[in-house]
Computed example of a mutant assay.
Amino acid sequence: MAEYTTPGVYIAETGGPPPPIAALDAAVAGFVGIAEPVPGAVPPAHGITAAAEFGRYWSTAPVLADGTANVLWAAVRGFYANGGDRLHVAAVPPDGDPAAPVAGLADTDAALIAAPDVQALRPAAAGATMEALVALAAVPLSNRMALLDAPAGLSIAALRDWRRRFDTPAAALYWPWLRTTGGTMLPPSAIVAGAIARTDSERGVWKAPANIALMDVTAASVVTTREQELLNPVGINAIRTFTGKGPLVWGARTLSSDPDWKYIPVRRFAAMLAASITRGLAWVVFEPNGPVLWARVREAADTFLTDLWRQGALAGDRPDAAFFVRCDTTTMTAADIANGRLVIRIGHAPLRPAEFIITHLALATAT
């Protein structure tokens, strides 16, 4: 603080730079499922950060009280074996409705949401649970992606038919089911969620979570190249096993028919961007809506996007080729300003994965 020695009137500038915008963590997972709670144990609001913590709040016995397998516990172990970090668990007892706890994830920061045991334990209720996950992920500015599971044992034709009930960029579907080293049959959502979290940590949310190995599991069935030719165009991501390699995630598509939202990293990055900027500009509410505020908003968003560009998250060899930020009289009318509406227009150039690698070969003849 300045030291004042002479009586008088002084003016102290208090503006300063706008608060920085922080990127939300898109790798936080949220599982709904069937579990037996430990009496008196209350799960922490921030979720759990290791598989061992699951046992503090829910039973890790291999069989539940109703005689069914404890699939959720196997899914949690698989999530952490594949690189998962923080996880929210919303569970119901064996006699409960597995779709009911989906709404509980809305109050968490879970961004990868799944129901990894429902198809195995409550197939009759699985459809409603998957639809509830999609509805939650599709909420505007939610920063969520639903990882769906189809029923086990479907033919390729039946799998394609099951997939037709969804058309959304906020969900992804993987196939086939997996077998853990402990022998449990699991739909792939929990395992893939861990692998996505690992990719986010190592590379960033803009990297396609594909061509990555899955740990401690084997594929329950083999997806051939011919079968993937039928799955990939409809957005079903195959898990392939190649000679000398374990199971690899070999697809990165959403369940959207909109070509702009075909790829998982494009959707996840855009959702993270929108949610982060919205939360990061919360300080703007009730500020005087004029040029000084608009300049501060532009500065905050520009700084955030420039940092992402420097990390390699955006296409374009210069910031002005990678994004734009507008907040001025070109984005707001006089009526907007009079009615307290501040309108920001942000555009960004997303990175799309190199899905098809084409090499042109030519034979040079000796002269």
Rank of each mutant, 00 (worst) to 15 (best):
R240T: 11
T365V: 14
L154A: 08
L87K: 05
A126R: 02
G347N: 10
G347K: 10
G15L: 14
D85W: 12
T68A: 14
P288G: 06
R179Q: 12
D317S: 15
I264C: 02
D260S: 12
R345N: 15
P233T: 08
L308A: 07
A12P: 00
R352D: 05
D117R: 06
Y263F: 15
R165T: 13
P39G: 05
N289V: 10
A170N: 10
I113V: 13
V292Q: 12
P116G: 09
F323G: 04
N237Y: 00
F356V: 14
V71M: 00
E229Y: 14
L361S: 11
I48N: 06
A111P: 03
T6H: 11
C327G: 08
E202Y: 08
R279K: 13
A300P: 06
A91C: 10
T5P: 02
V102M: 03
M215I: 15
A120W: 00
P43R: 02
V92C: 05
P101Q: 09
A35Q: 02
A270P: 04
V217W: 07
T241D: 10
I357S: 09
T367G: 12
G40R: 11
I48R: 01
L173Y: 07
T199Q: 13
L255V: 05
D149A: 14
G280N: 05
W206M: 13
P123H: 08
R164G: 09
T278F: 05
G47H: 08
T331V: 10
A170F: 07
R122T: 00
N232W: 15
I11A: 10
F242I: 14
